[in-house]
Design a protein around this nucleic acid. Structure first.
Length: 256
DNA sequence: CGTCCAGGTCTAC
DNA sequence: GGTAGACCTGGACGC
């Protein structure tokens, strides 16, 4: 994948050998850039996220015991800013529109997702006319401007900074264009796994999987409350279990 | 052609 | 605190 390293788009190649993840960067790199690349890899693959307590709780779980092989490490972006903007681009539109908007953003960034500085400096016209982001454009641009201006530090929301989940949620909900769905989605990527991602895809998928005719959000939440601070992740794995069927059949999971 | 709505959010009651 | 309408866009659908 391509990310910004020292302000320039650089290709990172990831390869896994057993339990080791290697990062390859074609071309010359400085020590600082290699450090940053490792930091990005840790963030993307969410290596700091300790799922052991979650897996322990899944022992004997009829629906989710399969996930103990190492499932649930959702792929994140290089920065929280990128996760927030991408998530806003999933709201109230078809998936094809999301791909188009993010494709335009990445093109603007020269192959990498653009930094807040670049988005803040890009005229509103570009968001509406080129990226076709509609009313989302001003939201994204405003968030970028706040980051650049210094009164918004999204990277501070990473779990390593020790903020309480409630504070993180409050900070996300305060962003223009971020509501309950987007906040829950970004929090999953950050490693706060309690909130359920409830939207027009997860709701019907839950009904189909659980063979229910209907279920209010509060009912769904109650059904997953037993997973405690991992309720949201349990919900997500329940909905996506069929994505993992090949790995399960192959039985090639590992136990971290 | 018009209407609806898709991996929602905001504002105004 | 809960709900109605508006909101960009574009693909799917009915007429």
């Amino acid at each position: 994948m391509t990310v910004l390293l020292g302000g320039a788009p650089r290709v990172l190649r990831f390869t896994a050998e057993g339990a080791t993840l290697a990062v390859e960067i074609p071309g010359r790199t400085s020590h600082a850039e290699r450090e940053r690349a490792e930091s990005i890899a840790r963030r993307i693959f969410r290596l700091e996220d300790d799922l052991a307590p979650f897996y322990a709780a899944l022992e004997g779980d009829a629906d989710l015991a399969w996930a103990r092989c190492g499932a649930g490490r959702m792929l994140a972006s290089a920065t929280v800013f990128e996760d927030v903007v991408r998530t806003i681009c999933t709201t109230n539109c078809a998936w094809s529109a999301t791909e188009r908007m993010i494709g335009a953003l990445v093109q603007l960034g020269g192959g990498a997702f653009p930094a807040p500085e670049q988005l803040a400096a890009t005229p509103e016209r570009w968001f509406s006319e080129k990226a076709r982001m509609g009313y989302r454009g001003p939201y994204v641009r405003e968030i970028a401007r706040r980051v650049v201006h210094g009164d918004l530090d999204l990277e501070r929301l990473l779990p390593q900074h020790g903020m309480h989940a409630d504070e993180v949620e409050e900070a996300l909900l305060a962003l223009p264009g971020v509501g309950p769905y987007a906040a829950a989605h970004v929090m999953q990527l950050l490693g706060y796994h309690e909130l359920l991602i409830l939207d027009s895809w997860t709701r019907p998928t839950y009904l189909r999987k659980s063979k229910k005719k209907q279920a209010k959000d509060s009912t769904i939440r109650r059904a997953f409350a037993k997973y405690g601070r991992f309720a949201g992740l349990a919900f997500w794995l329940y909905l996506t279990s069929h994505w993992h069927e090949e790995e399960r059949d192959a039985g090639n999971g590992f136990h971290p």
